[in-house]
């Protein structure tokens, strides 16, 4: 048995790298998620989100780096992690020949912490009938079943990998609500990877953006949203920009218009921009999470 350390971190990754023969799926990724936090993990398809999650769950050995999940060292005790983690994937491969009740009993046998009362509450809430065969369930219902299986053993950490992909808005809302419930009532740590940025913003305290295996930023959600601004500057006739402001994520010059997206925006940003460049006019634009995400990715693509 591996004892949890007194650390307040649910997940701690230091310089984690995963290399396959040719390509590097995850590059020097470092991340700290405190216990009880809700972390939103966003990035384009193939950015390394699922690879990271599989390493966190101890399913995939890392090429380099150190990891600690709920006090368990990923380089030595990785097989233990799954007992304390609830996991909901994008695609579900629950035994199709089993009945709902059989799946529940099957999974129940693997966890010491399984809570029967909570489990049947969840099943009732989602309208899942124990006699139904898994193969006869709709995609939404299977997702709900997967969420029940992930929550019923009262995991310390709940990992959701694109759980809402391909679901109708009503089911999505139900899933988000349930996850929030579990955050409220049981102080769980949540790790949510998703493309539905509005859901990520609702659920997460902290957001990390990953692109081609590299973590571009990690910031508290509202700080990310209110601190990231787009500046639209109009250049003097025939002039080019001289110096991008500090914290520039992405910028583009098109004719006289110079668009700059900066993080950690302050009033100083504008002052400095004005004094360092030949500008006619400056306008500051607020951005939603979607725009911010896109600018981070665009910026990283330009840099690469």
């Amino acid at each position: 048995m591996i004892q949890a350390t007194s650390s307040d971190l649910a997940i701690e990754l230091v310089g984690v790298t995963k290399r396959y023969r040719r390509n590097t799926a995850v590059r020097e990724l470092s991340l700290q998620i405190p216990k009880g936090a809700a972390f939103g993990f966003i990035g384009p398809n193939g950015a390394g989100k699922t690879t990271t999650i599989r390493m966190i769950m101890g399913l995939l050995p890392m090429t380099a780096g150190q990891g600690n999940v709920l006090g368990i060292n990923l380089n030595s005790g990785q097989d233990q992690v799954k007992r304390y983690v609830g996991y909901v994937p994008e695609q579900h491969f629950i035994y199709r020949w089993m009945r709902v009740g059989q799946v529940v009993r099957f999974c129940r046998s693997f966890y010491e912490t399984w809570n029967d009362k909570y489990c049947s509450e969840l099943l009732d809430l989602f309208g899942l009938d124990g006699h139904q065969k898994v193969k006869h369930l709709s995609k939404g219902m299977v997702t709900k079943l997967a969420l029940v299986l992930a929550l019923a053993h009262e995991p310390e950490l709940l990992i959701l990998d694109e759980p809402m992909a391909g679901l109708d808005p009503l089911v999505r809302e139900e899933i988000v609500e349930r996850v929030l419930h579990s955050i409220c009532e049981r102080k769980r740590t949540v790790f949510l990877s998703s493309h539905t940025l509005s859901d990520v913003r609702r659920v997460s305290d902290v957001i990390g953006i990953i692109h081609e295996g590299q973590l571009l930023t990690v910031a508290p959600t509202e700080q990310l949203v209110s601190g990231t601004k787009r500046i639209r500057a109009v250049l003097e006739e025939g002039q080019q920009p001289k110096e991008s402001p500090e914290g520039t994520i992405w910028n583009r010059v098109q004719g006289r218009e110079w668009l700059i997206t900066v993080k950690d925006f302050t009033s100083n940003t504008v002052e400095r921009l004005r004094s360092a460049n030949p500008l006619q006019n400056i306008e500051v634009i607020d951005l939603g999470l979607e725009e911010i995400f896109k600018d981070y990715i665009r910026g990283a693509e330009v840099a690469a």
Binding site: M57, L59, K82, R83, Y87, P89, H92, F93, I94, Y95, R96, C107, F110, Y111
Partner: peptide, 9 residues
């Protein structure tokens, strides 16, 4: 279903 099993303890 081997993948479902892989994520169980």
């Amino acid at each position: 279903s081997s993948e479902f099993l892989a994520y169980l303890p």
